[in-house]
């Protein structure tokens, strides 16, 4: 464990909690893409099946359980409890255009052709593009609530910190996972446009609205 990975995990946890609290307290999921949240629930489910087979540490196990629990709770709030506030007309990204290619790629490019490894690979590739429906929805509505931009900032920051963690681990441990690194670079690049708007607008107290 290093400071970059720990900060990354805490940033990820902060993002998940911010979103859950935003929906719960405002009793509304306006502006939130339910499709992205379903994709994140799929990411955690397919990646953390090793909860049943391997024990790494209390930290590892508890964070995985928290991530899975919060992501399913968020999906439940969006599609069940606060369904009336779900903005389905703007959450129209065709997720099958993400899941099918990612599913195919995870069979073609992986470290080991075993079920657990292919599901892990699928979750890595899926996580790289899971935010697209949310970014697409913001481009369609033309704006985002400030709390939603903070959620996106911490979510994007977490994988950027993981990139530094992988540099650190390569340098100090000789460890690297090319699949995770390439997917992590793609994932972080997808946030660049948002990061620019977040820094130039939200951090200056303005509302995030598109076109910039």
């Amino acid at each position: 464990m290093n400071i970059f990975r720990l900060t990354g995990d805490l940033s990820h946890l902060a993002a998940i909690i911010i979103l859950l609290l935003k929906i719960w307290k405002s009793r509304s999921c306006a502006g939130i893409s339910g499709k992205s949240q379903i994709l994140f629930a799929m990411v955690f489910t397919t990646r953390y099946l090793d909860l049943l087979t391997a024990y790494i540490s209390l930290y590892n196990t508890s964070m995985k359980i928290i991530y899975i629990g919060c992501s399913y709770a968020t999906v439940y709030l969006i599609y069940a409890k606060f369904k009336a506030t779900y903005d389905g007309n703007h959450d129209t990204f065709r997720v099958e255009f993400l899941v099918v290619p990612v599913g195919g790629l995870s069979f073609l490019v992986n470290h080991d052709f075993s079920p657990l490894e292919i599901l892990w690979t699928f979750s890595i590739y899926l996580e790289a593009v899971a935010i697209l429906p949310q970014l697409f929805m913001i481009s369609k509505t033309g704006e985002a609530e400030t709390i939603t931009t903070h959620y996106l900032f911490f979510l994007g920051l977490y994988r950027a910190l993981y990139l530094i963690n992988w540099v650190w681990r390569f340098y100090f441990e000789g460890f690297f996972d090319m699949i995770a690194i390439v997917a992590g670079v793609v994932q972080t690049i997808l946030y660049c446009d948002f990061f620019y708007l977040y820094v130039t607008k939200v951090l200056k107290g303005k509302k995030l609205s598109l076109p910039a």
Partner: peptide, 10 residues
């Protein structure tokens, strides 16, 4: 390959 190192990351 060394990426098979136990998956200890979240």
């Amino acid at each position: 390959s060394d990426s098979q190192k136990k998956k200890d990351e979240l």
